[in-house]
Amino acid sequence: MDIKVDLVQDSIGQLCPMPIALLAKNIRKLAPGQVIEIRADDEGAHADIPAWCEQTGNEFLGEEPGEGFFRYYVRKAG
């Protein structure tokens, strides 16, 4: 995925609810329009990260597979 990433969150090995809790903390560090990449191998993240985006109004840009984990991209709402 050709996206400029401003912050990378390593949630590999973490289980619910830590990836989302960490994402909520990290998104505060970004300016509106900036993008965070979350690396996670918890299967629940597939549903949870888009659901969190829907709830908070941030934009879910998509996911792509890495080696043994997934990358998720979220753009902070303006």
Partner: peptide, 10 residues
């Protein structure tokens, strides 16, 4: 866990 999820969702 639920409280953390709620707070994370703002």
């Amino acid at each position: 866990i639920i409280a953390t999820g709620c707070a994370a969702a703002g």
